[in-house]
């Protein structure tokens, strides 16, 4: 299947949270009791039953207020840190650009949760498995839009083939830049290129997003340096002792062992 893209245009978002509800409806996730976090935000973070929610930031400039609203979910990175972190081969990529968790292989270790630069995957303690937005892969593979995109009334979530949506996204940025030079795309150049790309109207931190999300250096060190070097060290050690045994055999050190040990010990001198 061709590479897909989901374009989230924050300039069209009204903060209605219907995407969060649609996600629950399609994915059989029960409603949860919410409480006000700040502004109109009612969800602090992802939970096993909430894979997408809207984050609200109020920005005041020149006595005017703007809501910086952001529908959050997994970005579905092309080069995902979560997948690199997983030792159990439970995370995989689809050709269409989605990052998915195989629940049968997942052991609940939380390596993915600790290494995603956006803190997306979490561990469902009850199930002892990682969870996150699936991108509605079941819908997408049947030719439907993801539930959140399907439901969004102002059309802030556009879904389609990458080749088709990307030019639309770029045209929209160009249009907004005429009045707001800060408008830009967020995601397409991060983590190998994300499937979910945002149009932001201000710097990423104004939305509570990291400016420079990357694969942690510690993760590269762990997987690309420590593992192979550790393997080499163990292999070298095993090879060295094998040679040690052979060389000792050849030198006759085993044959002479008893004799060497029995040789009387002349205490105090050699």
């Amino acid at each position: 299947m061709a590479r897909k893209m989901v374009f989230i245009d924050t300039s069209l978002c009204t903060g209605c949270k219907a995407c969060s509800v649609a996600c629950k409806a399609w994915n059989d996730l029960p409603a949860e009791k919410t409480q006000r976090i700040s502004s109109y935000q009612t969800q602090a973070d992802f939970t096993p039953n909430t894979w997408t929610y809207v984050r609200f930031r109020e920005e005041y400039k020149d006595k005017k207020m703007r809501f910086n609203m952001l529908k959050l979910q997994c970005f579905h990175c092309a080069d995902p840190a979560c997948m690199k972190a997983c030792s159990s081969q439970a995370i995989y990529k689809t050709e269409s650009g989605y990052t998915l968790i195989d629940k049968d292989k997942c052991i609940g270790c939380g390596y993915c949760a600790a290494n995603c630069p956006w803190g997306v995957p979490k561990i469902d303690e009850a199930a002892n498995k990682a969870y996150k937005c699936t991108g509605c892969i079941d819908r997408v593979e049947s030719g439907m839009k993801p539930a959140c995109a399907q439901t969004c009334q102002p059309g802030a979530i556009q879904f389609g083939d990458y080749d088709e949506i990307m030019p639309q996204a770029q045209a929209r940025v160009a249009e907004l830049q005429l009045t707001n030079p800060k408008a830009h795309l967020y995601g397409n150049e991060l983590m190998g290129g994300t499937t979910y790309v945002y149009l932001l109207q201000d710097r990423p931190d104004a939305y509570g997003l990291p400016l420079n999300p990357t694969t942690p250096i510690s993760l590269t060190l762990w997987k690309d340096i420590v593992y192979p070097l550790g393997g080499i060290a163990i292999g070298a050690s095993a090879a060295a002792i094998t040679c040690g045994v052979i060389v000792n055999l050849v030198r006759g050190n085993y044959a002479n062992r008893a004799k060497n040990i029995a040789a009387s010990h002349d205490e105090g001198g050699k």
């Binding site: 600790a114 290494n115 510690s218 993760l219 762990w222 340096i225 420590v226 593992y227 550790g230 060290a233």
Partner: peptide, 18 residues
């Protein structure tokens, strides 16, 4: 949760073990 402390614990733990 993601924190530098936890992220660095992983390569250290694995390196020491190996």
């Amino acid at each position: 949760g993601p924190s530098l402390l936890l992220q660095w614990a992983y390569p250290i733990h694995a390196a020491c073990a190996l």
